[in-house]
Design a protein around this nucleic acid. Structure first.
Lengths: 108, 108
DNA sequence: CTTCTGCCTAGACAGTTATCTAAACAACAG
DNA sequence: CTGTTGTTTAGATAACTGTCTAGGCAGAAG
């Protein structure tokens, strides 16, 4: 079991990811992208799923992208977004390991 | 594989958890608590690990507690905090499932 | 070239947050 | 009771965030 306390730098990097996930709209955006077979979703589809304006959705997508959680590419008129699995997995693992350590009540 | 898009309510509840994790200080606090054999940590130990004032640490602990990530109890002079594993596991699972769905490029 | 649609940037505004100091509360020791 | 120590609450302030409107850029179609 490897659950050392986080260094300040490690915590800063991981916190940036969690912070981006800390908004219901962004969490739903991520979920919509992840749940799409094919792995890619056009912005127009995402915008339609909310009662928010285009710029607001665009802003949230930018936050998710800058946190390394998603990436995008323009193809012709449309812009497509997809998940960055490794980043999600890294965040998931931290919580999983912490939960496990707490459950067994021990670590190193 | 179960990766439906999140409902608005589900997203709100989960986002509250991630939001609490979205601060480097809180992430380190959680990590310090989780990494402690015995599962419980006194506030005084946590305060010593940072260059922040007591009230600031107390504030962050409150945020984590209100997000359901930790819980606490006073025993005599000292207050002890511990992890709520189920809550961490729930957050971890969402990311894990989303990452997996994105990796296979499919869901349901 | 002009126009239309999709997406993003810029700027503004209201609400939230991280931090501090000062003060209060809780438990224990004289 | 009084004083001491550990922890939390209250209030203030500077910084950040989510949302909007207005406007700009990119590509496609006439």
């Amino acid at each position: 079991m490897v659950t050392e306390a986080l260094t300040e730098d490690a915590a800063a990097g991981l916190a940036r990811g969690f912070k981006a996930l800390g908004d219901p709209v962004r969490l739903r955006l991520l979920s919509l992208i992840a749940a799409r077979a094919g792995g890619e979703v056009c912005v127009c589809e995402l915008t339609d799923a909310f009662t928010l304006t285009g710029p607001t959705i665009s802003h949230h997508l930018k936050v998710l992208r800058e946190a390394g959680l998603i990436d995008c590419q323009r193809r012709g008129t449309w812009v497509y977004y997809w998940i960055v699995p490794a980043r999600l997995a890294a965040l998931s693992q931290l919580l999983d390991v912490s939960a496990a350590a707490a459950s067994t009540g021990s670590t190193r």
